[in-house]
Each structure stands twice: as C-alpha cells, then as structure tokens.
Amino acid sequence: MKILALETSTEFCSVALSLDGTVSGQEILAGRNHSEMILPMVQKFLAEAELALQQLDGIAFGAGPGSFTGLRIACGVAQGLAYATGLPVAAISTLEAVAQQTDAEKVIVALDARMGELYYAAYQKSASADWTIINPPALCLPQQAPAVSGNGWHGCGSGFDVYPDLSQLYREHIQQIHYELHPRAHEVAQLALPKFRDGACVDPAHAMPVYIRNKVALKENER
C-alpha cells in the first residue's frame, strides 16, 4: 500500500511516503512558508520514488489540533490532490502522531496552544499496539489538565517546556518528559496505514481540520 502523508500544524512542514509499510519522510522548519513549500516537497518525494500521484492508495494529513492556518493548508492540499485523483483521505490526530514517536506504553501529550492554554490528550497502548484514548483531545489551562492514574507515564510536547507547572501537576505519574516532540508526517503515515487497510478513510469532501479552539483572538473585554 502506498500512502502520502502531510503535516503542517506547527512551524515545521513535513511530508512522508509509506510504501508497503516502510516510511520515509522529510521535515523542514518552514516558519510561515508552509503553503510555498508543501507541494514542491510532495513532488520531490514522488519523483524520487518514481511514483505518479495516481499510483497512490490514499492521502493522509495531520488534522489537528494545531495552528489554524497550518491545519487548513494540510487539509486543503490533501483534498485538492485527492479530488484530482479520486483517492480517499485519512485525517490523523496530531496529538496521537506525537504519542506515536515514543516507545512508551502510556503517554500524555501537551502542545502549547498559545494564549496560556494547552492542546492535551492522554493515550495508552493496547495489546494490539494501537493507541487507546484515556483522556480525549482537549483545550485546557495547564493547571486544569485532566488527571491520570498510575505511574510510568511519558510526557510529550512543547506544553511541558512552556508550562513547567504541568510537570509539577503530574510529578507523581510521569517517568520521563520528551519536550522536543512535535507532530510529523512520518507518524501520520504510520497511523493512517491501518485506516486505509480497514476502509476507515473518508471522501475528500468530508475531510476536515480538528481545531478544538473556536477562536484565536480575545476581545478587549475578555482579556
């Protein structure tokens, strides 16, 4: 199975290609230039693999949460390429893509959402090596992050770096913190593979970003 994956939810822009389960990817610190970089990266990857877009089995993208503009770019590009070829699309949680980078069994993902808030989720690996959601993706204040039970948890993401109180909140539960982890297309491709195999993908028209936050600016009287 051949899957193209896109991830643009942070300042990094990444593309990955899964060929029969073997994933290769590229990541560039794009800043705000995702829209200029993503399609040339896709073309480069397909050319190096000697594949035409029509030879793919599906396109996956990091659906969020994350940067509003970044999420729209990945979703829009995935939809455009899928419409042009009739391919199905898989929308993958950016938080789960972070969890996928660890070898841990229990993971708390916390990404800085700006405005003093976090994008948060907690996962536990099942016997089949899939991720079970313990606390669903949410937007919250660091001091109001949901509780977890037991120890041996791994903390992942920029939220632990930006908000030290979060580490204190989970001090009795966390075994290790991976501050540097962020969503990547490599893991988006890995997580998308079973969705395409099981037919759990969607028509491009139904592929949507997952924003979680409803607005990005506060009115003066809300500050």
Rank of each mutant, 00 (worst) to 15 (best):
Pro183Thr: 02
Leu118Phe: 10
Trp131Val: 03
Gln168Trp: 15
Cys140Val: 08
Lys125Glu: 06
Leu166Asp: 03
Ala192Leu: 01
Asp198Glu: 14
Pro164Lys: 02
Pro137Asp: 08
Pro204His: 04
Val162Phe: 01
Ala147Gly: 10
Val202Ala: 07
Tyr170Gln: 12
Gln168Glu: 12
Val210Asn: 07
Gln175Arg: 05
Gly155Asn: 00
Ala200Leu: 14
Val162Met: 05
Tyr211Gln: 04
Trp131Leu: 05
Cys156Gly: 03
Tyr123Val: 07
Pro194Gly: 11
Ser158Gln: 04
Val148Tyr: 05
Gln168Phe: 13
Gly159His: 07
Tyr170Met: 09
Val202Glu: 12
Phe196Arg: 05
Ala185Lys: 01
Tyr179Trp: 02
Met208Glu: 12
Leu191Thr: 04
Gly150Ala: 04
Gln176Tyr: 13
Gln175Thr: 06
Glu180Pro: 02
Ile134Gln: 10
Ala138Gly: 15
Val210Asp: 05
Pro146Met: 04
Gly159Trp: 04
Pro146Ala: 04
Pro142Gln: 10
Gly159Lys: 03
His182Leu: 14
Pro136His: 11
Val210Tyr: 08
Arg171Phe: 14
His182Ser: 10
Pro137Val: 03
Ala145Gly: 08
Ile177Trp: 12
Ile134Leu: 09
Cys201Asp: 10
Leu191Cys: 11
Ile134Lys: 07
Cys140Asn: 09
Tyr119Arg: 01
Ala192Pro: 00
Ile134Met: 08
Leu118Ser: 06
Ala127Glu: 06
Asp161Cys: 14
His186Ile: 10
Glu172Cys: 01
Tyr211Met: 11
Tyr163Leu: 02
His186Tyr: 09
Ala205Asp: 14
Phe160Val: 04
Ala129Lys: 15
Cys140Lys: 06
His182Ala: 13
Leu141Pro: 13
Val162Thr: 07
Tyr179Pro: 01
Gln144Ser: 15
Ile134Glu: 02
Val202Phe: 03
Gly155Gln: 00
His206Ile: 09
Lys195Glu: 11
His154Pro: 13
Phe196Asn: 06
Gln175Trp: 06
Tyr119Asn: 07
Ala185Gly: 00
Val202Pro: 03
Gln144Leu: 14
His154Ala: 15
Gln144Gly: 11
His182Gln: 10
Gln143Ala: 02
Asn135Glu: 11
Val202Cys: 03
Pro194Lys: 03
Ser149Ile: 15
Pro209Leu: 00
Ser158Met: 08
Ala185Gln: 00
Ala121Cys: 06
Pro142Arg: 11
Tyr170Thr: 13
Pro146Ser: 02
Pro194Leu: 07
Glu172Met: 09
Phe160Thr: 06
Ile134Ser: 07
Gln168Tyr: 12
Gly157Asn: 07
Val162Gly: 04
Ala122Gln: 07
Gln168Cys: 12
Glu187Phe: 14
His154Ser: 14
Pro137Phe: 10
Leu166Met: 02
Ser128Gly: 12
Gln190Lys: 05
Tyr120Gly: 08
Cys201Thr: 13
Gly157Ala: 05
Ser128Leu: 12
Ala138Arg: 15
Asp161Arg: 13
Val202Lys: 02
Pro209Gly: 00
